[in-house]
């Protein structure tokens, strides 16, 4: 019985903690699938967290908060899109890092006065006597924020779009072979812009989830490196939204376990796991050529595309 409660607790917290990771990862998957590497996730998340908190605090409406976070995260991502798609600088790495610097800095400066303020309004929680009555699954899923459900739904929808629709074909082609897509009249720049925007919006919402729901308050640097885990998770899930679902909750459970198992196991060692497993996953992925081609890295990831350069 003890063990069952423990597992249910872990899974329930994994869902809660994995949600911002999932949102960020889904966005970064789209971004990278279209061929753009955005290392600014951490910056976009913290900007979203701050915008979401402030808006919710001011209006009392958490949905407006989420909307504001989406807009702010999306705007930040557009800076990166402009640099990497329009200006075509070969320095997507630097531009992504700049967004992270900027986001952490700006929220740190502007957020000074907001620290420690309580948030009264919060996102609705899904829970009903019926849901709770389902054994095992009931206690895991009930009492979770509506964003948890939305993000699960989003993962399914984004997976469907990516693999079962004509948009998905265009997106994946833009990341694999922009030249081929361009030859067939696909506007690769537009596709990439939209995907980077998706990344920014979702990272922003992920941040808002933290500040409005998970820990309804504002603290400087409250994303605590989640943006970097998102980068790792994107690879770990092989750029697949469904796998991101599993990966996010797995990494989410690590957070909970590192706290829960503290007396038995150093939490820092558990926290290394996301990064270590990502490197190991990449090693395994690259051991076999067939395997790499089946799942592989978007071939044009991080490369600007310029038609005249042929």
């Amino acid at each position: 019985m003890e063990l069952q409660t423990f597992i249910i607790d872990t899974l329930s917290r994994a869902l809660a903690y994995g949600t911002p990771l999932l949102l960020g990862t889904l966005g970064e998957i789209y971004c990278e699938r279209s061929g753009v590497l955005n290392l600014g996730v951490e910056g976009m998340m913290i900007l979203g967290a701050f915008a979401g908190f402030v808006t919710t605090y001011a209006t009392g409406n958490p949905f407006l908060g989420v909307l504001a976070a989406a807009i702010v995260g999306g705007s930040a991502s557009m800076i990166h899109a402009f640099f990497s798609i329009t200006i075509k600088t070969n320095i997507q790495v630097v531009s992504g890092l700049a967004i992270t610097f900027f986001g952490l800095g700006l929220t740190g400066v502007l957020g000074r006065g907001w620290e420690g303020k309580p948030l009264d309004a919060s996102l609705p929680i899904i829970g009903s006597p019926f849901l709770e009555s389902i054994p095992v699954l009931g206690p895991i899923f009930s009492g979770q924020s509506v964003l948890v459900y939305i993000s699960i739904g989003l993962a399914l929808i984004l997976w469907f779009i990516l693999f079962k629709t004509s948009w998905g074909i265009s997106i994946r082609s833009a990341g694999e072979d922009p030249e081929a897509a361009d030859a067939l009249g696909v506007n690769t720049s537009l596709v990439r812009y939209l995907c980077v925007l998706t990344g920014g919006v979702l990272a922003g919402i992920g941040g808002a989830y933290l500040s409005i729901d998970y820990r309804p308050s504002w603290t400087q640097g409250m994303t605590v490196g989640m943006g970097w885990i998102v980068i790792a998770l994107t690879i770990f899930s092989f750029w697949n939204p469904l796998a991101a679902l599993i990966g996010s909750y797995l990494f989410g459970s690590l957070f909970y376990l590192s706290f829960k198992l503290q007396p038995y196991l150093a939490p820092e060692l558990l926290m290394i796991m996301p990064y270590l497993t990502t490197i190991l996953a990449l090693v395994l992925l690259n051991c076999s050529k067939t395997f790499r081609r089946r799942l592989g890295v978007p071939a044009a990831l991080g490369l600007p595309y310029n038609r005249e350069e042929k």
């Binding site: 004509s166 074909i169 265009s170 994946r172 082609s173 694999e176 072979d177 030249e179 081929a180 897509a181 030859a183 067939l184 009249g185 696909v186 081609r293 089946r294 592989g296 071939a299």
Partner: peptide, 19 residues
Amino acid sequence: MLVPQHTVAENIALGLKGL
């Protein structure tokens, strides 16, 4: 101008109008 990782059908469908 084919995307090597994609299937034949996906390559043909890419950018095709009326699908």
